[in-house]
C-alpha cells in the first residue's frame, strides 16, 4: 500500500508498485521446479539507426510473436491454458490488409490478470491503420511478420533474424514496430 514519507505529506507508492522483476521471478520459479536457469541474452553494445524518413512518409512493418490460429491443436481462445502445441518455429508473414487470426495461447502471458480477448492488446494492427489513415505514418508494409518465440537463441540469431530482415527488405520498410506478446 501507499505510505506517507516521514514528517511530510508526500505520498510514496507501495513498495511492490514497480515493474515486475520477471527474470528473478522466472529464475526462482523454475529453480523451485528443479530446472536449470535460463540465460537471457545480454549485450554491452546496442545498435542505433536513426529514422531517416519522416514518419508521415515512412513505411512501417509490424512484427509480432503471436501465432496463427491452428484449429487442430486445441484451445487457443481467450484465457486458454498455455498451449505448447500452438507454437510455431519458422518466421511467417500474413497480409496486413485484413485482420489476421493470431493468438497468444502459446506464450506465458498473465493469465490471471488478463485474457487475450482483444487482439488489439497484443497486435496493434488496427491502431497502426488508424495512424496511416490520420497521416501520422506514411504506410504499413504489405505484410506483417511473425517471429518465433524460440528458446534457442542460436536459431533466433542464425535463422529467424536474417529471415525477418530479408522480408522487411522485400517489403521496403523504413522502420519496424515489434510487439512481443
Amino acid at each position: 500500500m501507499a505510505t506517507t514519507a516521514p514528517e511530510t505529506k508526500t505520498v510514496f507508492a507501495a513498495e511492490h508498485d514497480v515493474p515486475i522483476p520477471y527474470m528473478q521471478r522466472t529464475r526462482d520459479y523454475y529453480q523451485a521446479l528443479g530446472f536449470s536457469p535460463y540465460r537471457w541474452a545480454h549485450f554491452v553494445d546496442v545498435p542505433f539507426a536513426p529514422l531517416r524518413t519522416p514518419l508521415a512518409r515512412a513505411r512501417v512493418a509490424l512484427i509480432t510473436t503471436a501465432a496463427p490460429f491452428q484449429p487442430e491443436v486445441g484451445d487457443q481462445g481467450p484465457g486458454a491454458p498455455y498451449n505448447a502445441a500452438a507454437k510455431f518455429y519458422k518466421v511467417y508473414s500474413v497480409p496486413a490488409e485484413s485482420m489476421p487470426d493470431l493468438r497468444i495461447a502459446h506464450v506465458g502471458y498473465d493469465r490471471l490478470h488478463t485474457s487475450a480477448e482483444d487482439i488489439s492488446t497484443y497486435l496493434p494492427l488496427a491502431r497502426l491503420k488508424d495512424a496511416v489513415a490520420a497521416g501520422r505514418i506514411g504506410a504499413l508494409g504489405p505484410r506483417l511478420h511473425g517471429a518465433p518465440t524460440n528458446r534457442s537463441q542460436r536459431v533466433t540469431i542464425e535463422i529467424d533474424n536474417p529471415e525477418l530482415l530479408r522480408r522487411c527488405r522485400e517489403d521496403g520498410v523504413d522502420a519496424a514496430v515489434l510487439v512481443p506478446s
Binding site: 520477471y22 530482415l165 519496424a176 512481443p180
Partner: peptide
Amino acid sequence: MSLAARHLEDNGISTVIMGCAKDI
C-alpha cells in the same frame, strides 16, 4: 524480439519495441 530489433537496427531499419517485461 529484442534480438530481432537489434538485427534490424544493425541493418539500417529503425525499430521500437512495445512491451511489458521491462527487465528482460
